[in-house]
Design a protein around this nucleic acid. Structure first.
Lengths: 348, 348
DNA sequence: ACGTTTGGGCCAAACGATTGGGTAGAGTGA
DNA sequence: TCACTCTACCCAATCGTTTGGCCCAAACGT
């Protein structure tokens, strides 16, 4: 089972334009024009029979152009860089699925890298991507405090944001503010007056907007949520657990918790259980994103569905516009609330 | 906020070997040799002062070599292709995190694509990767029924498998068989005699090995699990739910369910609840992988931890060996069981 | 019959880096 | 002094494509 030390047979009989040109008895530039499609170019380059011959030969040899040679010549790589906090977060993974799929449709390939929301990593990974000469970037990890993307913009590098927005760079997000309001609406309708918010990281527009929408709606209902019932947190289960536990220990225990992320919500459910309370009976819990397992939990989770896959798609399409030199308006996609057993009428 | 229609300023003053050569007053080949490190080459190419001068200039211009030009010349891209069933599966996402991280360490970049376990997609995506001239491939989606990887091997393309194994291609997996035995051991110790297995897809070695280990251990204990208590399933929550529900409706209801995947286990928990039973009281549920949220669930899930991140790492290292022409032995990493509230002593 | 178009190509210069050969001059040994 | 070896470079081909020109012959208009 020794592997061949060199890959000669892999590369040696890879067809190139030259191979085809020789076989067809025409010049390599003719082959290039014919194969490059663009109809008009092709048919101006050769007669119908020559075109057919070239196409046949290319097919038989299953020729694929060498992307390195192409990129070298054209100075565009058809490569996109995607930065996310972490891919093991289902939300980002799903967004990325949309990105990858759509990019492939446009014959683009994507690199993706985790930055852990760490500004140094963000910077480093971006430079790595640029050194690979990507045509454009998609940031899923924009921070409102460390505005690295401003620098990137200043350098004239084409990019879009996804999931989070910052400044007025082109971005595709969920309408998080509206989503937050939906949750408030829901909990108000169920009669919850004392509520807590697990608000996520302060530098991410997702958490910030969701909380803002929620708090605004409560304020409009005449029920200002006091600051000690709004706590920042990490976006994962552990973060939700801690923060949830903290919110539950106040003098007046809230009857409902809104976590700006499903995983934080699951953590919060853990905290509720640990306090000897029942989710959906003693304390309602609402999440955000509607990840697939939300509905499968022992107590199914009420949550706001955000169109993650679609956000990925749209972000690529937006980037295509930017690459074409058009300018691109921010987009916010509309969320919808899905009520399940984790939220119920207030008990008190 | 118009974007510049062309990216002249992005590319125009990108330093090349020539820029540096001119500034330094030497030939471009000299610059190449100096910058290419390799010590011996470098110092044979130029005198100490020239070397310093070149290095300085390159630094000042922050030169990075054009990977397309390099690849065109050297016929190697420093690119790796990674195929997974889907990235929104935390397990694969975590493996990929390990891959990406380790690849970056070796100055390789990775493309990743979802194949949904669909043979046609697998084939198509592989060809896409190859048309991008990747140096090697990592398959996280090998199927034991449609042996596409055999073809890939036959073409002499360097690759390794991760997560699943098939044939005797180089693979990095968890010792799934041992993991299955661990679960059996655990449930036997708790006195469970009637057990059901949610066995995953029949074409994935993960599920197959985990079930086999489990069933073998039960058999050794003199408790053969009847075939109607072993059911294939998809790996996601929905799959676990369905299959769990089916297993629970047999005449003699099992007192424990082993799902070969945490998400299937969560689905099974949903099914248990739906049958009016309590997880960890009436029915024990055990999963596999120990994804982070397993311990945060309302009823924390007993599960087997598989070193997902590490599998990703090791797979890259194995591929590096293959690329170096050495041959590479399969690896199986050892799993460990983590008992939590979802499994308890048998009730009957 | 003669200029002009057009169909059907060919030519060659890039793109940026690598690498197997030179080669001029300085130093060395005999 | 001569042959020789280093040292420190330079030369040029090459990887596979793209693309602005150029060119020849046939057809066409008048």
């Amino acid at each position: 089972m020794e592997h061949p030390p060199d890959r000669t047979n892999q590369t040696s009989h890879r067809a190139t334009l030259r191979t085809i040109a020789e076989r067809a008895g025409v010049h390599v530039s003719t082959v290039s024009r014919v194969l490059n499609g663009s109809e008009s170019e092709g048919s101006r380059a050769a007669g119908a029979s020559t075109i057919a011959r070239i196409r046949d030969i290319a097919g038989a040899l299953d020729y694929t152009p060498d992307p390195n040679a192409t990129s070298l010549r054209t100075q565009r790589t058809h490569l996109l860089g995607v930065l996310v906090p972490r891919l093991s977060d289902i939300v980002l993974a799903t967004i990325y699925e949309g990105v990858e799929e759509t990019a492939a449709l446009h014959r683009y390939y994507t690199f993706v890298a985790n930055t852990r929301d760490d500004p140094a990593e963000q910077r480093a990974r971006t430079e790595m991507m640029l050194s690979r000469r990507v045509d454009g970037l998609i940031f899923g990890d924009a921070r409102s405090d460390v505005r690295y993307v401003d620098d990137v913009a200043a350098r004239g590098i084409p990019f879009v944001l996804v999931s989070r927005h910052v400044g007025d760079h082109p971005a595709v997000t969920c309408d998080d503010y509206a989503g937050g309001r939906l949750v408030a609406e829901h909990l108000l309708a169920l009669g919850h007056e004392r509520v807590g918010v697990i608000a996520g990281e302060p530098y991410a527009s997702t958490g910030v907007d969701r909380s803002a929408g929620f708090l605004d709606r409560y304020r409009e209902a005449g029920l200002e949520v006091p600051p000690d019932r709004v706590a920042h947190s990490r976006f994962d289960t552990a973060g939700g657990h801690e923060t949830g536990a903290r919110l539950l220990t106040g003098r007046e225990r809230p009857t409902a918790l809104f976590a700006v992320n499903d995983f934080a919500a699951i953590g919060a459910m853990g905290a509720v259980r640990e306090s000897g309370l029942r989710v959906g009976k003693d304390v309602s819990v609402v999440g955000f994103n509607d990840v697939p397992l939300a509905r499968e939990l022992p107590v199914p989770l009420t949550t706001v569905r955000s169109p993650m896959h679609k956000m990925g798609q749209r972000s690529v399409e937006l980037l295509m516009q930017v690459l074409a030199g058009q300018d691109a308006a921010p987009e916010r996609l509309v969320p919808s609330l899905h009520a399940r057993a984790s939220s119920a009428r207030a008990a008190d």
